[in-house]
Design a protein around this nucleic acid. Structure first.
Lengths: 343, 343
DNA sequence: TATATTTGTTTAAACGTTTAAGCAAATATA
DNA sequence: TATATTTGCTTAAACGTTTAAACAAATATA
């Protein structure tokens, strides 16, 4: 059974002052005397007073809650982004509500509804793989609630976006592989409809051109980049008449699947086939051989996303518009592609 | 700039009925005519009405929000538990607020305050490694808010707990190692003050006794079970005059650290030293050799935790008391300890 | 036909805050 | 000393709901 909560009125009664005075004292209003403030703080402590967020949020129109939507928390990238968002926002008195879309468009819509219903002051999101329709996100904008996208974004929404330079990352990777003597570079990519994967594909294609390498359609695939997807695509690549001498996978999980298949086929890595992943998930450094990957600066992305949100609430007049922050990614070279490493 | 929200009153005005009628219509009250209900639904849709959670929660005293506190989301175990909690609770109209303690007692206290402030209807938590004082958790209880613990619990709080049988898991592991011919079994354990790790240690000690194996103090260590901790403890074990022939690590991350050290020392696994982890994190199946581990049934734990919470809100009279649900764990045997596997 | 019950609605208070406006007392300014 | 300003509070309304109580009209019961 619920115990009776202590309210601002209880404090007021004890001190024989008005509830308004108590409220102001607790907010350190300059028009309240030090003496009264001290008294209020004392009584509040004695009665174990805890402010009621619902009431204050309702009245003031500010919930101090920020919604975060990610495809899943179960990946180092996303959980690191979240942790950094939380750190920055907590500092400013905000709490975050995390929801997972599980890469499902349906779940994403539901999450958005829940967050709006909860009256969050803003939403920071990375879109599900499945998402193509934007009406749900438009709804957020139409309510005048700041929307910040990261990693998986969408130009057409005309909101802030923080991500890494996917196009250029592909260039880095191809360059690295070429330097290691690779000539026939395959790409296991994500779905083109997702902007970041599209950019990686474009970067891959352009980089091949730049290095005067032939572009072979059978070396370029699209998928959802799960471990299973990586296994399937790698198996396909191995069955080609002319196998690639290197594979650039647009996600670490798929890269892991590819690695498993290569090992099962007893193909030497990187001697016969070099492998590069994307995301710098911790396991890339744990498996044998360690997988070369691209670090996405998750901490920085989280901080920038949080700060972008804060920018809006601090001077609340600004209208939102397309504003991209693109961070340079970093190639972490490991055993799976570094032929010069002495064994 | 914030747009004006549609409220229940706006709908009432359009239809020339009272706000109360609208509220009841939306809640499908039996005393409202079908005709009015239909009208209300229609107008609500046209005006893009979205109920204000703050107002209804304030008035009804129910926020439909449940707080979840975990040491970190960045582990398969926790994120899987969370996902299952969310699934069960969403079904019943609850949303969850996830907070991470980062294994810090301080952060945990802050999280609890934030959750209470947000007026959550319940809290499902797994305690931080650091946590020894319980006053913060007592505060939850004293407010009459259901508190459910999982994995990392504490008897003294006298609340519901869902976890696996740690004591018996240790028996399973020791038994398995003995069957594989191991005689000198080391244990890299967690801190004894944390109940689950204490149980694993007790199980380890008792299992050694049961199998008439000598208990050697230098083979039993305590730590925080990070990768780094695993590295340190394994290095220590290797420097002993008589090395162990097998190591049971109470956490997968530490087991991974131990594995790294073993590989760096070119020690053959499992021939020279067998290795067993705990938690069945996905990477145990990714590394070489694959690490034997204990599955903790994260999905089941999440579901049970959520259902336990629901039990309280559905018949809200019940007082909370110590009530443990202990699930049997499952040993997943892999290469790191299975000497009978033909190479 | 008179009375009781059901149906469909309204009224008004309440949830716990915040805040604009008001006001008396104390202090500063002329 | 008279007036203006500042200080420290109070009053009352508001935020958007829910809900107990009231009530008129319609319908059922005797």
């Amino acid at each position: 059974m619920k115990k009776k909560r202590t309210t601002i009125k209880d404090i007021a009664n004890v001190l024989n002052i008005s509830a308004a005075a108590v409220s102001k004292a607790l907010h350190n209003d300059s028009r309240i005397s030090e003496r009264t403030k001290e008294n209020v703080r004392q009584v509040a402590k004695n009665l174990h007073y805890q402010p009621n967020h619902l009431a204050s949020a309702l009245r003031s129109g500010k919930s101090n809650l920020v919604g975060v939507i990610v495809p899943r928390t179960n990946s180092n990238f996303f959980s690191s982004v979240i942790q950094n968002i939380e750190e920055v926002l907590n500092e400013k008195g905000y709490s975050i509500i995390i929801t997972q879309s599980n890469e499902s468009y349906d779940k994403e819509c539901k999450s958005i509804d829940t967050l709006l219903y909860t009256q969050v002051d803003g939403i920071i999101a990375s879109m599900a793989n499945e998402t193509v329709a934007l009406s749900s996100y438009e709804k957020i904008k139409s309510k005048g609630i700041p929307l910040i996208l990261f990693d998986r974004g969408e130009n057409d929404l005309n909101v802030d976006y923080i991500g890494i330079d996917d196009y250029n990352s592909s260039h880095l990777i191809v360059e690295h592989l070429v330097k290691n003597g690779c000539q026939r570079i395959a790409h296991i990519g994500g779905y083109k409809r997702t902007r970041i994967y599209n950019n990686r594909i474009r970067g891959y294609v352009d980089a091949l051109k730049k290095h005067k390498l032939p572009l072979d359609a059978e070396l370029l695939t699209e998928g959802n980049l799960t471990i299973e997807d990586g296994r399937i695509k790698m198996t396909q690549l191995l069955s080609l008449k002319t196998r690639p001498d290197s594979v650039y996978v647009a996600g670490d999980y798929a890269a892991l699947g590819a690695l498993q298949v290569l090992k099962e086929h007893k193909i030497r890595i990187p001697e016969e086939i070099s492998l590069v992943g994307f995301g710098n998930e911790p396991f890339t450094d744990m498996v044998t051989p360690k997988i070369t990957s691209v670090d996405q600066h998750s901490a920085e992305i989280g901080k920038q996303a949080a700060n972008t949100f804060l920018k809006y609430v601090e001077n609340d007049s600004t209208e939102q518009r397309l504003n991209k922050i693109i961070l340079a990614a970093e190639l972490i070279v490991r055993d799976s592609s570094n032929k010069k490493t002495p064994l």
